[in-house]
Design a protein around this nucleic acid. Structure first.
Lengths: 340, 340
DNA sequence: GCTGGCACTCCGACCGTGCGAGTGCCAGCA
DNA sequence: TGCTGGCACTCGCACGGTCGGAGTGCCAGC
C-alpha cells in the first residue's frame, strides 16, 4: 500500500524533527518542513494511526507527537540510511588516533574522539583478556618471598599481580621461572591456559614445583577466571550539557550506572565486530538505562573482536550519525591496534 | 577582645548552618540553633560587620547571609577543628582497600572509597613517574624490528612503549638487552636515568650499541620527560545529585575540566604528604573551578610523596569532615602501597 | 481517501497579590 | 559602651487566575 508507506514517511519525519528540535512535533510543522505531498489534516489521521500502533505518543493533549521507544526502533531498523561521515570527520579520526604511544593512550584517545564526534558519553572496553593470548610473562622479585607477575597479551594489555610465594626465592629461580612460564604459555590463549598447567608442573624441575604451582594458580584465578575487564569512559560532560531535559530531571542514576562499569560492560561485550548494535530505552534491562540508548560495536580485526566500544545517550539521539561514527571509530581502532 | 571572638563564633555558626541546610541563614535562626548568649539584634550587628569585612554576603536584600570564599577561608584556617572519623568510617576504609590485587585496583578502590565517604568527586593521581625508581625493565619482541618496552616501577606502576628498532633483532639480543638495561637502570630514579645512558652505551657490546641507543632514547623521551601522569576520577554522580544548586545551573564546565585532567593534575600534584591543602572557589586559577573547592593531600610514605589525591566539590562543603576523610584515606593508601 | 473548517482542550507564560523572612535603625537600658 | 526589643521597610517567592497559542479530533464536502 502506498498508504502504509506514507505513514512510515511521516514517522521518519517526526523522528528527524524531534531529534533536531526537541519539541513535540505537530501536523502543521511537519507539512511545512517536509514535502509529504499531503495536507496537515491527512497527516493528523496518519499520526492517529501511528499513535494507536504505539510508535508515537503525545506528552499531553494538544501537544505535538513524540516518538516512543518502539518508534525509534522502527526508525533504526527500517527508516534510516547510514549517514556517511564527512571528509573532515574521517580526517579527524585519523589525526586523533595517530601518534598514540601505547594501549592506554589509544583507548584514551578513542574515547575522547568518540565523545567529541557524537556529543554523547563514550565508552571503550579494554581488549578482553579471555580472547587474548599470552605474548610474554615476566616475574619480578619485589621481596624475599614475593613476586610481581606481569602478563603482556598480544593485544597490548599489561596486567600485574603480586604473588606471595611459599618460600623465599633467589634471582636464579626467577630466571628459570620466566623461561618455564614463557615456554609453557607463550602464544596460548588465556582461556586455554588452564589446560597447560599439568604439563607445566610435570616438566618443572623438582625445586621449582611449589613456586610454579602457586604462580600458575594466581595466574588462572585472577587473570583468566573473573575476566575482570576494564572500561574507559569519557564525555560525561555531554550528559550534563543539553540532556537535562532528555533525562527527566536528573542524570545522576545514569552516571552511577556508568561508574558501576559492570552494567555497561555486560552490554558492551555482547557485540560482533562490524555489526552495530542499538539498544533503545526500555530495551535495556537495567533500570538506570531505561531512559537511555546505547549504540555499540565490536572492534578488532575481522576474524575476532577484541572488545566493544560505543556510546550512551538519550533515546532522542541522531541514530544514523552516531551509528556511523561508532562504526568508523571502531574500524580505525581495530586497524591501529593491529599495527602495534 | 571578646568582641571579635564572638563575631568569629557567629561566622563559624553561619558556615556550619549554611553547609548543612543550603539556606541563607538569618539572625533569628542563628540565635535559636546556637547558644551564642546574645540576641538576634546583636547578631545582626555582628553580621553587618562581617559583611563589610567581606566574609559573608546576602544573595539579595532581606535574605539571610551566605559565606563568601573569604569566609570559608577564615573558617578553614582558624575556626574548624579536625573532625575525627568514626569507627565505622575507619573500618570502612580498611575493608575497602583490603584485598586489592594490583596498583590499578588499589587506586580504583581508593577513588570509590573517597567518593563515597565525602559524597564528592574524588580524584587520585597515579604515583608520579618522576619520583619513582626503576624496579625492572623488560623488552618483549612483537615483530622483527619492533620491541615492546615494559617498565615496572617500585611504586607498582607498569608502563609500556613500543619501540621501532634500527634493525631486526633476535631472541638472544633481547635477553642481552634485558640484562644490560636492568643492570644499568635497576633501582635508579627515573629523573636520574638520563645520567646513566653514556655509561650504558659504553659498556654495551658493539653489536647492541644501536639497539641500546634507540631504546634508551625512547625510554627517556616518553617516560621520563613529559612526566605524563595519570588520574583516576570517580563519584561524578555526586556532582549531578545535590549540587545542581551549588553550581549555578550547570555542572558541565566542571565535568569538562575534570576530563581534561591536566588542570586537576597540576593542582593535585602540588602537595606534600601529610599536609592537607584546601583551595576555595576563586583561589583556583582555572575558570571552571572558580565555583568549586579542592581538598588535596599527598600520599606515600613519610619520606616521599608518591602522588596526590583529593576531592572536588562545591565551596559549600563540610570542610572538616572532608579534610579528615582525605587525610585518612591518603594515610591508608600510602600504607597499602608500601606493603606491595 | 484527501482536504479545509471548526470547536475544543490544555499547557505554559504572564501578571498581580500577599505573606513571611530578614534586615537596618533607633531609643532605652544595664 | 554595648546589648536589647521594637518597628517599619524591603524584597523574593509561592500562589492563583487569566489569556493566547498550538495542536488535536471530527465532520462535511470534494
Amino acid at each position: 500500500m502506498a498508504h502504509d508507506e506514507r505513514r512510515l514517511e511521516v514517522l521518519r519525519a517526526i523522528v528527524q524533527d524531534f531529534v533536531s528540535t526537541n519539541d513535540p512535533v505537530g501536523s502543521k510543522a511537519l507539512a511545512d518542513r517536509h514535502d509529504l505531498g499531503v495536507s496537515p489534516a491527512t497527516i493528523r489521521n496518519d499520526m492517529a494511526v501511528l499513535e494507536e500502533q504505539g510508535y508515537i505518543t503525545q506528552p499531553h493533549t494538544s501537544a505535538g507527537r513524540v516518538p516512543t521507544d518502539k518508534g525509534y526502533r522502527l526508525f533504526v531498523d527500517r527508516l534510516s540510511a547510514v549517514k556517511p561521515l564527512s571528509v573532515a570527520e574521517r580526517r579527524a579520526i585519523e589525526r586523533f588516533l595517530d601518534g598514540a604511544v601505547d594501549l592506554h593512550d589509544v583507548l584514551g584517545r578513542t574515547v575522547r574522539l568518540l565523545a567529541q564526534l557524537t556529543r554523547q558519553v563514550a565508552v571503550v572496553q579494554y581488549p578482553t583478556l579471555s580472547r587474548s593470548a599470552v605474548r610474554h610473562l615476566e616475574g619480578v622479585q619485589v621481596a624475599a618471598a614475593r613476586l610481581m607477575l606481569v602478563l603482556i597479551t598480544d593485544t597490548g594489555r599489561v596486567e600485574q599481580r603480586v604473588v606471595d610465594c611459599p618460600a623465599d626465592i633467589d634471582a636464579g629461580a626467577v630466571a628459570e621461572l620466566r623461561t618455564l612460564l614463557n615456554s609453557a604459555f607463550s602464544g596460548v590463549k588465556l582461556t586455554d591456559a588452564g589446560g597447560k598447567v599439568p604439563d607445566l608442573l610435570e616438566t618443572a624441575p623438582q625445586h621449582l614445583r611449589g613456586l610454579v604451582a602457586t604462580v600458575s594458580a594466581t595466574l588462572l584465578e585472577t587473570l583468566v577466571e573473573p575476566s575482570e575487564d576494564r572500561l574507559v569512559i569519557g564525555g560525561t560532560a555531554n550528559l550534563a550539557r543539553g540532556s537535562a531535559l532528555d533525562f527527566q530531571g536528573t542524570v545522576s542514576p545514569l552516571l552511577e550506572a556508568l561508574e558501576e562499569q559492570v552494567v555497561v560492560l555486560r552490554l558492551i561485550s555482547e557485540v560482533d565486530a562490524g555489526t552495530v548494535l542499538v539498544r533503545i530505552g526500555e530495551e535495556n534491562d537495567h533500570e538506570a538505562l531505561t531512559g537511555a540508548s546505547l549504540v555499540t560495536v565490536g572492534y578488532g580485526s575481522r576474524d575476532r573482536a577484541l572488545g566493544g566500544l560505543g556510546i550512551v545517550g538519550p533515546t532522542r539521539m541522531d541514530y544514523p550519525m552516531n551509528m556511523a561514527a561508532v562504526r568508523a571509530v571502531a574500524r580505525y581502532v581495530g586497524q591501529t591496534l593491529a599495527e602495534s
